[in-house]
Structures are given as C-alpha cells and as structure tokens.
C-alpha cells in the first residue's frame, strides 16, 4: 500500500489540466498497490478556489496552502511545505511540466527520496510500485523500483489522460507554510514573459503542426493558417527554436515537449533522433519535406515530398474546400 500525494499545478485560481493527469497517475498507483491519494494545492490568492475545484476527484483530502509568498512559483519557496506534507505519504508526484520537473526533484532532495522522472506507466512489481520511464531519447523503457521510505515521481502528461470527476466531495484542509532556508532568501522572482497564443497547449492538443529550420522567418506566416484550419497547436524543432523562428517552449522532442496527438504534421523537419523522441506517441504522423531521403519519412505514416512553401498554402486551401 502506498499513499500518494499529488502536487497540483494551478493558474489564476484554477487547476491546470496537468494536475488532472497527475491524479490519474495517483489513481493508477492506488489501483496497482492499494492506498489512497491526497492533493496539495499551493499558491497565492486563488489557491483555495483552485482547491475547491479538485474536491470531486476521489482524494482523501485536498490540502491547501494559500500564502502571499507563494504567488509566483519558486521551488525554494514551495519545496519546504511540500516536503513537510510529503512526510505523511509514501510517494509524492506531479506531472512532468516545467513546474513538476523543477519542484519534485528539489522536494526529493529535502526528504531524501529516490526519484523516477517522466513516467509513462506505473504498476506493481514484487509488492512495490514499478515506475516505467523512457530513457535514451525514448529508445528504451526502463521499469524501476525505489527503496527510500518516501519516493518521488513525475508523470508524462501525454500518457495519463486527465482524471474525470468521480463524485463525492473531499474535505479541504489548510496546511501551514513551512519556512524556507537560505536558498529561499537568496532567490527573487523578476518576471514572467509569457508567449501569447490563441492556439491550444502543445501537450494537450489533439492535433499538432510543427515546423523546422526550413521555415525561416516565415514560420508563423506559413504555419498559423494551417494550425488555425485544423484547430491545432504549433510546435517546432530545436533548430527552429535556436534560430529564433519560434519561442523556445514550442520545442518538441526528447528535451522539449512530448506530444501524443491524433495528428502530427512535421513541416520542413529532418527527423533527428531527439525530435522523433517527442512524437512517437502520435497516432498519425505526416511529413512534408523536399528531401525524399529525410529520416522523418522512416516514421511518418504519410509522406509528401514537396517544397513546403508551396505545399503548406495548398494544404490550407484543400482543407478549406
């Protein structure tokens, strides 16, 4: 039996979809080995409101720590409280977003936990939790067990569909803010420059259109209309991000976002190992590339050998028809 603590990720008084994926992970861990789960919500004003929206998912408790010092997320400020609460659990987990990947390992350091990052599955192995996770750019999946009294993990969002409400109303309980150490006093949040986009979130979208180095400065001019027509999110290769054609957080791949949409269209992307690692879970992959030998065609379900500057506008027209 392992009781699981889910650390919620919230925005503007609402839980993010990532939180619901972490709840699914917790439920699967409970199903595998028994035990229950609770959810911990931290934040500034609005944390309690977010917590209230998490009462219907079957948690033993929804714990909340609302404090002005938690308004802007900083691991140094969040980790002490999460660690205090985690001491009453066998496993602390969040989704492997930039929030979860930053916070949970720091919490693990604080409670001397071993860690399984970016898990794609959780199961029972010899009376322990078995965590399955991709390694070597998704070229291997390893299943591991952890043997510290408290364990820590993050869940790959694309592998755990958001939990749906299961009825009931979990009790909300406030938890005290735990003081941070020297680290907390030596870090200062300066600003968040957010990239505004009307497109859906990459990790949640049913369709994704990604562009590579070949698009040059015409990245958005070409991809926006296509993405709009399809209701798709926009992604990019590392080369497109490095060159500044697309923002860094559009990067799809081993070291960027992992996506698993129904339809993934790779435009002017060669298909390097690191890029492919992020799209293997897609149901249908389409590649548009002028080089018929580009590696992307080895994994694409449908390949179009063409100049993207002609093919993409033509595709938009054809979809409108």
């Amino acid at each position: 039996m392992t009781n699981v603590l889910v650390v919620a990720e919230i925005h503007a008084g609402k839980p993010k979809a990532a939180t619901l994926s972490a709840i699914t992970f917790a439920k699967q861990a409970n199903a595998a080995l028994g035990g229950s789960f609770s959810v911990l919500v931290l934040g500034g004003a609005g944390a309690r409101a977010a917590a209230e929206q998490l009462q219907g998912f079957g948690a033993s408790k929804v714990l909340v720590c609302e404090d002005a010092s938690l308004e802007n997320y900083l691991a140094e400020r969040y980790a002490p409280t999460v660690a205090e609460v985690a001491k009453g659990f066998g496993l602390v987990v969040a989704t492997a977003t930039s929030f979860g990947k930053d916070l949970i390992p720091r919490v693990a350091g604080r409670v001397d936990a071993s860690y399984a990052g970016d898990c794609s599955a959780v199961s029972a192995v010899d009376g322990k939790l078995g965590f399955t996770r991709p390694m070597y750019a998704g070229n291997a999946f390893g299943t591991l067990t952890l043997s510290t009294p408290i364990q820590a993990a993050t869940a790959r969002q694309s592998e755990f569909s958001p939990a749906t409400p299961s009825g009931g109303s979990s009790a909300i309980e406030s938890v005290a803010l735990a003081a941070g150490g020297k680290a907390a006093s030596r870090v200062e949040f300066v600003s968040l420059e957010s990239v505004k986009s009307e497109r859906p979130e990459l990790t949640e979208a049913k369709r994704v259109v990604s562009g590579g180095r070949a698009l040059k400065e015409r990245f958005f001019e070409l991809l926006e209309p296509l993405a709009k027509q399809l209701g798709a999110a926009i992604g990019a290769s590392r080369a497109a991000c490095d060159a500044g054609y697309a923002p860094g957080d559009y990067q799809v791949g081993q070291t960027g976002k992992i996506v698993a949409p129904e339809l993934y269209i790779a435009v002017g992307i060669s298909g390097a190992i690191q890029h492919v690692a992020g799209i293997k879970g897609a149901k249908v992959i389409v590649a548009i590339n002028k080089d018929g030998d580009a590696p992307i065609f080895q994994i694409a379900d449908y390949g179009l050998v063409a100049d993207l500057f002609e093919a993409v506008p033509a595709l938009v027209q054809a979809l409108k028809a």
Partner: peptide
C-alpha cells in the same frame, strides 16, 4: 518554462 520565459 511552459508558456514563456521566467526571469529570476
């Protein structure tokens, strides 16, 4: 970070 750049 997800959604942009966080300066600290």
């Amino acid at each position: 970070v997800d959604g942009g750049t966080m300066n600290v």
